[in-house]
Write a protein that binds this DNA or RNA. Structure first.
Length: 518
RNA sequence: GGCAGCGUAGCUCAGUUGGUGAGAGCGCCGGAUUCAUAACCCGGAGGUCGGCGGUUCAAAUCCGCCCGCUGCUACCA
């Protein structure tokens, strides 16, 4: 067992009735960045992702394709698993809700909730929308011209009357409101919290949590006619992966409650209302934070199959490079807000920030060390006020980054780092070491040492966003593998003189438009 | 309909509790430079801070109304 503080972070589990789109990759990338940041900052991190494989939609999609649900999963789930490699996700576990461990866990939490008196059997009658996975009151629906009844979201609904188990959600209203009040950071960003508070304040009704109309799911303990509502099943994944129902398991004791569930803004309610209630009912603690990120738009348009602008994340990574894609989405999009992307925006970002600012800085400074100092890190002379100032600015990056990442403001963390990169370029231009070469070689050496040290610090700090490229950057200044943690930042661990550096090679290539045949 | 939020340079956005002449990045124009990935550096043009009215010595920043947009939620039908 580690002395490091624990940090448990999860993505939502993806619904694999289709293949991954950029939205899935985005959530995974952002969560991975947070996980890596915490790991480098000295935390014992547990990072979970996975797939949500039950439910009627899975059955229907399979049916449409003329195959079974397991066959559909066999086709799609590997694509989600492939994202782990393709996007360099540093996960510790990949959970699939069809796994045996998850059946046991889901049934166990159900039994706990039942034993607590929060589950009762009744009948449910109403209009159900498969697509929305929600029931609607009759007056929430209407008939269209074709005589098809539609729900408020414009999706078809069907009359369902079935015996159902209910969860006493209404009993948790006060406790939820108290929890939101006492933990202002529970729901992030803040705008989402306001919505949830207003929703819960408006009154909670009990929740139908079982179905008898199909069987692709986990059976209710002691009543096989019923299978669990997908959200009871899905949410439970977060504790299954820690060994639940064995609450004495090492993982469970160490990592529950979760520090952050990173999810899309569309499923905030399930995570911020239902999930804490389920957990309390089962005698467990609620997670510490639920962060709802925004949606991605292709050139400002929502991605949809009918518009034909759904982007394959694997294609993007192949075209621009994994790290460039990771950087683009994490830097360009305010985490928590919706974001937009386009070829032009991606190219502009990667060329300006990565190739021109950071890559070129490394190249111009390290090549001077190679050509003028035989590739050996020089011993710096007395530091000038300019040297001290830029080093101090770099030393301040960690605190700013931490502060930003406390609130998952990934874009602020990156802005802080690139502010230093911009200043470093100004510093380099102002000091003009190429001119000092003839007038004051000792001073040139000092400037080059300072710049190399800046590259070391920036390299360490950008590892969470661009693990591969940052590693190559750090290789250029020969930072040993065990000296790449955030504890190595700052004045206490400056780049030592005497290191022999390899010949500098470009880490961040410019994106050049391929020649178009005309 | 209710609640919450937003509308600031061509684009994306910053602008603590009202007070140095309204900012950043990208883009554009000009200059400088050659260490470097046609990169970096310097300078410049560009805005009625959605509109109207009000409070104040002073408002992008507070209040009211209006217009437009977004989210949550309700209801009519």
């Amino acid at each position: 067992m580690s002395a490091k503080p624990p940090f448990y972070i999860t993505t939502a589990i993806a619904y694999p009735n289709g293949v991954p789109h950029m939205g899935h990759a985005y959530e995974a990338i952002a969560t991975d960045c947070i996980a890596r940041f915490k790991r480098l900052d000295g935390y014992d991190v547990r990072f979970l992702t996975g797939t949500d494989e039950h439910g009627i939609k899975m059955l229907q999609t399979a049916q449409k394709a003329g195959i079974t649900a397991p066959e559909l999963l066999a086709r799609n789930v590997p694509r989600f698993e492939a994202m782990v490699e393709a996007f360099n996700l540093s996960i510790d576990d990949f959970i699939r809700t069809t796994q045996e461990r998850h059946h046991a866990s889901s049934q166990a939490i159900w039994e706990k909730m039942a034993a607590n008196g929060d589950i009762y059997k009744s009948t449910y009658a109403g209009w159900y929308s498969v697509r929305d996975e929600a029931y609607y009151a009759e007056d929430e629906t209407q008939l269209n011209e074709q005589g098809v009844r539609l729900g408020p979201q414009g999706t078809p609904v069907e009359w369902v009357e079935e015996e159902s188990y209910f969860f006493r959600l209404s009993a948790y209203q006060d406790r939820l409101l108290a929890y939101y009040a006492e933990n202002p950071g529970f729901i992030m960003p803040e705008a989402r919290r306001n919505e949830v508070v207003s929703f819960v304040s408006g009154g909670l009704t009990d929740l139908s949590i079982s179905r008898t109309t199909f069987d692709w799911g986990i059976p209710v303990p002691g009543d096989d006619k019923h299978i669990m509502y997908v959200w009871v099943d899905a949410l439970t994944n977060y504790i299954t992966a820690l060994g639940y129902p064995d609450t004495q398991a090492d993982l469970f004791k160490r990592f529950w409650p979760a520090d952050v569930h990173v999810i899309g803004k569309d499923i905030i309610r399930f995570h911020a209302v239902y999930w804490p209630a389920f957990l309390w009912s089962a005698g467990l603690e609620a997670p510490k934070r639920v962060f709802g990120h925004g949606f991605l738009f292709n050139r400002g348009e929502k991605m949809s199959k009918s518009v034909g602008n759904v982007i394959d994340p694997f294609d993007l990574a192949a075209t621009y490079g994994v790290d460039a894609i990771r950087y683009f989405f994490l830097r360009e999009v305010s985490f928590g807000q919706d974001g937009s992307y386009s070829h032009e925006a991606i190219v502009a970002r990667m060329n300006a920030d990565l190739a021109n600012d950071l890559g070129n800085l490394a190249q111009r400074s390290l090549s001077m060390i190679a050509k003028n100092l035989d590739g050996v890190v020089p011993q710096p002379g007395p530091l000038s006020p300019e040297d001290e100032a830029i080093l101090a600015l770099a030393d301040g990056m960690l605190e700013k980054s931490r502060e930003a990442m406390e609130g998952q403001a990934i874009h602020h963390y990156l802005a802080a780092v690139w502010n230093v990169v911009a200043e470093a370029n100004r510093y380099f231009a102002a000091q003009a070491p190429w001119a000092l070469r003839k007038t004051d070689p000792a001073r040139m050496a000092t400037v080059l040492w300072v710049t190399a040290e800046l590259i070391r610090e920036v390299g360490i700090l950008v590892q969470p966003v661009m693990p591969e490229s940052a590693a190559r950057l750090l290789d250029l200044v020969v930072v040993p593998a065990d000296e790449r943690g955030f504890d190595r930042l700052g004045a206490g661990h400056r780049l030592p003189a005497g290191r022999v550096l390899p010949a500098p090679v470009g880490v961040f290539p410019r994106y050049v438009e391929p020649e178009t045949a005309s």
